[in-house]
């Protein structure tokens, strides 16, 4: 199959998945036995007669279910996610501000996971069954076993409380917000040339990103390790060794590049799991991203906001997977067949 067709087919599948996501979210409110008004408004909101009537009108709850469904779909496809009960602003407008904050955190966490996991996995494989291997495996299994929020709390207590490093929020109180260009403070502050804001933002993003990275680095380093072990058994590695190349050249020039191909497929999943993990880390660090938006919406019984955040996360995640699949098809032609 040509690469073009592969991409086309994969993109079509993506359309099906996004459509499925929207459908699933809609029917979840219908299939799970609950009062749709209670879901939409919360128990307190149901006391307000005017609000109830308005909600029935907005969501067309008095119409047949298929009509509600098409109305819901057409609204979402036009980018109309409804208004948040909590912030009173359109959900999409809220999320547009929150989205870069979460992506910034996820990318930074991703980098930290990689910086820990790739060397750990390689050393583990090269020095198999040595003390390095055992330590790195213990670290990875402990990392995976802890909830993100717990790592976040530990980091906050140790580094912020005892050493005064970082802290809650995206910037220290008193630091001016950079203008909204990309919405990622690390980038925006550099774009306007404010190095002081950049450093402050950097110190604030480090701890939550580590909390996200620790749990993911465990999984990744195991994957790198097993992939590296597999590659080291290949014939071309034996050939390289027989040619008399130094071990370092064999490992870094010949083995490493091939060993990192397999973990690439996993990157999409990793990024998605960071979006999921961000829900907890943002709660602990009061990080104003999509995850915290979702949690605040839960406490405020703000269904439009919950729905919008969950749908947007699913769309971002499945798009990331789409990109990874296409990237992988470029790197490794075998998947196209």
């Amino acid at each position: 199959m040509k690469l073009r067709y592969y991409i086309l087919r994969r993109a079509l599948l993506q359309v099906v998945v996004v459509f499925g996501v929207l459908t699933l979210v809609f029917f979840a409110t219908k299939i799970i036995p609950s009062n749709p008004l209670a879901v939409l408004l919360g128990i307190e909101g149901m006391q307000d007669k005017a609000l109830v009537e308005q909600t029935i009108k907005i969501w067309k709850l008095d119409r047949p279910i298929w009509e509600q469904y098409f109305y819901y779909l057409s609204n979402l496809l036009r980018g109309e996610f409804g208004r948040s009960i909590l912030t009173r602003a359109p959900v999409l407008q809220d999320l547009r501000v929150r989205f870069p904050a979460t992506v910034e955190l996820a990318i930074f966490g991703f980098l930290i996971a990689m910086v820990i996991a790739i060397p750990a996995g390689i050393l583990s494989a090269v020095y198999r069954d040595s003390i390095i291997d055992h330590l790195s495996r213990i670290f990875s299994i402990v990392g995976v076993s802890g909830p993100e929020w717990w790592w976040g709390i530990i980091l906050l207590v140790v580094f912020y409380f005892f050493f005064g490093f970082g802290g809650s929020g995206r910037l220290s109180p008193g630091t001016p917000y950079p203008p909204f260009i990309t919405g990622m403070y690390l980038i925006d502050s550099l774009l306007i040339g404010r190095f002081d804001i950049f450093l402050d933002a950097l110190s604030h993003i480090t701890l939550p990103a580590i909390a996200l990275g620790i749990t993911r680095s465990g999984l990744t380093s195991r994957l790198v390790r097993s992939s590296m072990l597999e590659v080291l058994r290949e014939d071309y590695i034996k050939t390289a060794r027989m040619k008399g190349l130094r071990e370092r050249v064999v490992i870094y020039r010949h083995a490493l590049r091939n060993a990192l191909i397999a973990p690439v497929t996993y990157m999409g999943f990793l990024f998605g799991s960071m979006l999921g993990g961000a829900i907890f880390v943002e709660t602990v660090f009061n990080w104003q991203g999509m995850g915290l938006y979702l949690v605040n919406a839960i406490f405020a019984s703000d269904y439009p906001a919950i729905q919008g955040a969950v749908i947007l996360m699913a769309i971002i995640y499945s798009t990331a997977n789409l990109l990874v699949d296409i990237l992988y098809a470029f790197i490794d032609p075998r998947v196209r067949y």
């Binding site: 979006l275 999921g276 839960i298 919950i306 699913a314």
Partner: peptide, 19 residues
């Protein structure tokens, strides 16, 4: 595929909230 395209526990949060 559709169920798995929700990151982490986000879909579970939605369902638990609705129920």
């Amino acid at each position: 595929d559709i169920v798995m395209s929700f990151p982490g526990v986000s879909l579970a949060i939605l369902l638990a909230y609705i129920a």
